[in-house]
Design a protein around this nucleic acid. Structure first.
Lengths: 235, 235
DNA sequence: AATTTTGGCTTGTACGTACAAGTGGATCTT
DNA sequence: AAGATCCACTTGTACGTACAAGCCAAAATT
């Protein structure tokens, strides 16, 4: 991943927000202050702020400033990253199947490319809990191409995507999703502690990354009774 | 809505794409060509293209150009606009309840503000069909504040959002959503032609607009068996 | 005292310039 | 003929400038 000035500012501010240095409702330094503080032009500052806006971290008020926004308290922003970045603090993740070489699933909505299918597939399965409530069963596949030592390694802060970003400089650049309401099958229901046949939200995702041959295919099964899936979008 | 140069170019290109003048896979004129054609600077052109990128109309290739992208053929891009703009051609909309003054719903996920609750509520209900298959039941509420004559009037191309944009210069600036898998109740199941108790996808949306006191509250009930809800996101 | 005006801050739009970096065909060299 | 180089094109990043427009409090006017 190429380092750029705007990305520097962007991640720096994002970290400050994530760590609570900048709290919800706080105004960011004005664009001109950021310019002088970091010795960059307003064009670059605005590019960084635009990205934060797009990802829902801030809100901009014409004539006033940019302020830190309340991130969705439900399981928000699935269109940006994975689960553990989206939710607040009290999220526990349990590995049902540790990362290992396994067959490509034949039931994913998004079909891997021929090149990916030729390669081996790495897979892992997690159960996501809010407190003690299991709310999401998650399966992930990706081609075993460029990620040396990813199996056997602990994930950074429990997040696969943070690991990709920090250890391999791989960033998610986009995603496609398909959403379906389905009956829970027995296995899924068991892990989610619900009756088989209960409606669950099935989300199929293909994450695109800046490595053109690396995509992550995820199948998520969510119990939305207590914790609906959230999403937001701002121009 | 304020008219800006970049919005001009943006809508002009968008219309060309929507009307098929620019087809999927076609390259747009280069940024420099657009500059000279419209007598604007590259900064402005890029702002317009960024918006098209964000809304999923185009794809950019470094060193090559911008090309028109395949829009998702499933019921895509709910985070941007409403239904009839998101899907292709063969969508039929049936009014179950024409726009009229009705009570605010007490069951919406997103609570209208005090100011909105004080005002009267306008409501309408639609059934969305792909061909002959009913796929989505849609209820919409919004405060009766600034939209003179909107009841009794035909929607532009059947779309409420297009009507807002073209007749009232109101644009959607963002949205919040909550997604749940639920059992279909009898009424919903009847209209969607499914058995009561079948899982359906319930989407609650609050659309924000450039009129700060105008939000649109929608409750959508989708039969995702045949047509899953699609979504995509690109940096 | 109440109202209007002003001025200084903020973000929004738009101008123009320069160079980096990816792409691909034409040209030159071996 | 095959390969390497070059060049003209594309988009990406970053610089700098100017003014419009929204917000708000202090100052001037009524």
């Amino acid at each position: 991943m190429k380092r750029t000035r705007y990305k520097e500012i962007e991640t720096l501010l994002k970290v400050k927000i994530q760590h609570g240095v900048l709290k919800v409702g706080d105004y960011l330094p004005s664009e001109n202050e950021l310019c002088t503080n970091f010795s960059i032009t307003r064009t670059t500052v605005r590019k960084a702020l635009d990205n934060l806006l797009k990802e829902g971290y801030i809100e901009k008020k014409h004539g006033k400033g940019s302020l830190v926004k309340e991130r969705r308290h439900s399981l928000g922003l699935l269109n940006v990253k994975g689960f553990s970045e989206a939710v607040g603090m009290n999220v526990n993740t349990i590995f049902l199947q540790e990362p290992a070489k396994r067959e490509w699933s034949t039931t994913t909505s998004f079909r891997p490319s021929e090149n990916e299918l030729k390669a081996n597939s790495l897979h892992f399965e997690q159960l996501r809990c809010v407190g003690d409530d299991p709310v999401m069963l998650e399966n992930n596949w990706f081609a075993d191409l460029e990620l040396k030592n990813i199996i056997g390694q602990e994930f950074v802060e429990g997040s696969f995507f943070k690991t990709l970003s920090q250890k391999y400089l791989i960033e998610v650049t986009g995603s496609e999703q398909e959403l379906r309401a389905e009956y829970a099958d027995e296995r899924t229901a068991g892990y989610l502690k619900i009756e088989p046949g209960t409606p669950i939200l099935h989300i199929s995702v293909k994450f695109h990354t800046n490595k053109s041959n690396l995509n992550i295919y995820s199948e998520l099964y969510c119990n939305t009774m207590k914790y609906p899936i959230g999403n937001s979008y701002h121009l």
